[in-house]
């Protein structure tokens, strides 16, 4: 080992020290609480071992909300990716005006989430929301955007996509800027169709960026909360109750902190496993598993 590498561990100190104190401690505390029957209102907490976990895993409500979460998560990340990628490609084609567009298209991502939810509610609310009011003006009977179980899910997915498509667009646009243009030109001279160029030249070289965006989004989409809370409150019925909405109900409404913490741990394990699987597959398909 070279001399200078010896001091390297010192570099970890500020960040990991901070994480240990500020993040690991609360996280450990939360995990600790997950083994207790702990109602925030009373001082008594009883150790019940894996009781909370057993309770939760046997509930249909957990699995239903997990299913809803998956649906919304994959729906919105899929939509975000397709639209974001299309936008990135479009921006890449336009040289001069791309800057203006990229700034304008990025705006929804900057809006504070709580506020973004409110803006979207003013769009989607029935009757007096902008969309309904416009449709009704032309005597078109609108759908019940937030009130029917199907459309509520669609609305929630669109809402998430509105906020996060810009992020994907920006990352992929940046990645496109780093492309080796000579490859594309060579393919064009060979007379390859646009589709073939996209499929065989552009996508393979964007794989790291694609994995980056999809994993970041998937990780965050499972924590998706503000917008659902404001738009539907998990309703109608339980149509848009995601795992985070359920955690909120348990922890902040019913003050069952022990059970809520257990749910947090379950979420974490499931999502981590899922992400690992997705990453593996993506890597394997596109690079023969060399990483």
């Amino acid at each position: 080992m070279v001399r200078w590498q010896r001091g390297l561990w010192l570099f970890f100190l500020p960040s990991f020290g901070l994480l240990a104190v500020v993040l690991l401690w609360p996280l450990g505390y939360a995990i600790y609480l997950s083994f207790f029957d702990y109602y925030l209102g009373s001082d008594a907490r009883t150790f019940i071992g894996l009781g909370n976990y057993a309770d939760l895993l046997s509930e249909t409500r957990l699995w239903r909300s997990m299913w809803t979460t998956m649906l919304i998560a994959f729906g919105s990340v899929g939509l975000e990716f397709v639209v974001g990628f299309a936008l990135a490609l479009a921006l890449y084609r336009l040289h001069r005006s791309a800057k203006v567009f990229s700034v304008l298209l990025f705006l929804p991502h900057i809006v504070t989430p709580v506020v973004a939810a409110l803006f979207l509610k003013w769009m989607l609310a029935s009757n007096w929301g902008f969309i309904d009011a416009t449709l009704l003006t032309f005597n078109i009977e609108p759908q019940d955007w937030l009130g029917s179980p199907f459309w509520a899910k669609v609305s929630v997915i669109l809402a998430d996509a509105w906020v996060f498509t810009p992020l994907i667009m920006m990352v992929l646009y940046a990645a496109l800027q780093g492309l080796d243009t000579s490859l594309i030109e060579a393919a064009q001279i060979d007379g390859a169709s646009n589709w073939r160029i996209l499929r065989h030249v552009i996508i393979p070289s964007l794989i790291p960026a694609i994995i980056f965006t999809i994993s970041v989004r998937l990780m965050d989409v499972f924590r998706f909360f503000d917008i659902i809370y404001v738009l539907t409150g998990g309703g109608p019925g339980t149509a848009t109750e995601t795992i985070t909405m359920y955690t909120y109900q348990l922890g902040f409404r019913m003050l069952e902190v022990g059970k809520a913490s257990a749910l947090g741990v379950i979420t974490l394990v499931l999502v981590a496993a899922l992400l690992l699987a997705i990453n593996r597959t993506l890597n394997k398909t596109y690079r023969g598993g060399d990483r």
């Binding site: 609310a125 029935s126 009757n127 007096w128 955007w145 937030l146 009130g147 409150g233």
Partner: peptide, 21 residues
């Protein structure tokens, strides 16, 4: 009830009355 009643709280209902809906 107006469309969207499952996501209506007091505000939405108040507006529906105020706007004659």
């Amino acid at each position: 009830a107006p469309r969207g009643f499952t996501s209506h709280a007091n505000d939405e209902s108040t507006i529906n009355l105020q706007q004659g809906l």
